[in-house]
Design a protein around this nucleic acid. Structure first.
Lengths: 73, 73
DNA sequence: TCATTTTATACCCTTTAGGGTATATTTTGA
DNA sequence: TCAAAATATACCCTAAAGGGTATAAAATGA
């Protein structure tokens, strides 16, 4: 799963809009949009600010591996 | 495990020097050093170029979760 | 259907990531 | 011990990340 899809899904599951997520994460609205659209040149720290809201963070995962569910983690 | 430690360990296990890793990954030497020193404002795509050499990529992992071994993945 | 909400696109602007390179420091092994 | 290799630090420079904002398009639901 792409980071972009992950964020989009988590955001929707929590019922947040992009502006609200941006505000809660302390990043710009522009950033949230680029993140959800799969831009690859994002800054790591900003991505982490967003993932942290969902209890996640950026890490190294084996290539082509699916994301972990909370139960598997 | 931090991304920085992960890269440093993988690099040493494969017997690469920083300059060689940088060259193989297609990033600058400066970048490899900042990555291994835990700089947080790195660009996602550059980190991915490095992780890809070891068969890994950047992904969302539950916070505080240890890295997966290849067997667990 | 149509107004409201949400998301996407486009622009300007400031800050800085990261490349290169030079120098200093540390590590390593002979 | 000490020369060679590896790593760390410091500098300049350019491209672009990302914030803000304005506008357009799309989605939602009453």
């Amino acid at each position: 799963m792409q980071l972009s899809e992950f964020v989009k899904e988590k955001r929707r599951l929590t019922g947040l809009t992009q502006p609200v997520l941006a505000e809660k994460a302390g990043v710009g609205l522009r950033f949230v949009r680029e993140l959800e659209q799969g831009k690859e040149t994002l800054r790591l720290d900003k991505v982490n600010q967003v993932l942290k809201l969902f209890g996640y963070e950026v890490g190294a995962i084996p290539a082509n591996r699916k994301i972990l569910t909370d139960e598997e983690s």
